[in-house]
């Protein structure tokens, strides 16, 4: 008999869509984990999903030119649906800059561009991610989902920490999870009463080995003010 009645995989389809023979992902790849979870949510429309480059066509130029991600080429998955499309950005911060690590302008740009559903997600929160992809598919018109995918190689951390790092990004408010539905209503999906110190998120990443206490303090201020701007957009219920 089970000690607990909670059976976690019940919340997700058991069928695997991303367990290829020739998966060249590194050990502990956050991108592979995010794709595996996303494909489960795309189940019914998976045939319509296509991989595109951020640089391809004018459609994305608008989204990516204005953001600090301009230099890196995130993988984008595009799913055409009646009356619009769903664009999912798998962001593994390939550009590697500190600015890129703390500033995520794309979701806000997508809102300004009139996307009807915009959300941030992270594979450390698989059920949240799954729900958001589903919502993005159901939303009328264009939808955009920005997924933070920790990369053990580029960020230089121990691959067993991939899921933890993603969680620390969210808990430190560096990458808050939220969604923006119709009428641009912001909604936080998961809140932390007391944020985790930013150092917890940055220090295990050796790409930031040289970072000073002062820089961390300055970044904390940036993160907090961005978070405040975000929460200010939320209408009281």
């Amino acid at each position: 008999m089970d000690k607990f009645s909670l059976f976690v995989p019940n919340f997700l389809p058991f069928k695997e869509y991303f367990v290829p023979e020739k998966n060249i992902a590194c050990s502990g790849c956050g991108l592979a984990l995010a794709i595996r979870q996303t494909y489960k949510a795309l189940e019914a429309v998976i045939e319509k999903a296509e991989w595109v480059k951020a640089g391809d066509g004018k459609l994305f130029a608008k989204l990516f030119d204005k953001s600090p991600m301009g230099n890196s080429e995130p993988s984008l998955l595009r799913i055409k649906k009646p009356g619009g499309e769903l664009i999912i950005c798998f962001d593994n911060e390939a550009g590697g800059s500190l600015e890129e690590a703390v500033k995520k302008a794309m979701p806000a740009i997508a809102v300004a561009e009139g996307f009807r559903y915009v959300a941030t997600a992270c594979p450390s929160y698989p059920f949240d991610l799954y729900e958001k992809v589903k919502k993005g598919l159901e939303a009328e018109g264009k939808a955009y989902i920005h997924i933070l995918c920790p990369c053990p190689v580029a960020w230089q951390f121990d691959p067993e920490l991939t899921v933890k790092i993603g969680r620390w990004a969210v808990e430190s408010r560096t990458f808050p999870l939220y969604e923006v539905g119709s009428a641009s209503a912001y909604h936080l999906t998961g809140t932390t009463a007391k944020p985790r110190p930013l150092a917890d998120y940055l220090k295990p990443q050796y790409r930031f080995a040289e970072i000073s206490e002062q820089q961390i303090a300055d970044l904390t201020t940036t993160v907090e003010s961005d978070y405040k701007k975000l929460t200010d957009k939320i209408q009281p219920e």
């Binding site: 020739k22 060249i24 794709i35 494909y39 045939e47 999903a49 991989w51």
Partner: peptide, 9 residues
């Protein structure tokens, strides 16, 4: 289309 994923060989 799935094979276009950058993680696939």
């Amino acid at each position: 289309s799935m094979v276009e994923c950058s993680l696939l060989d």
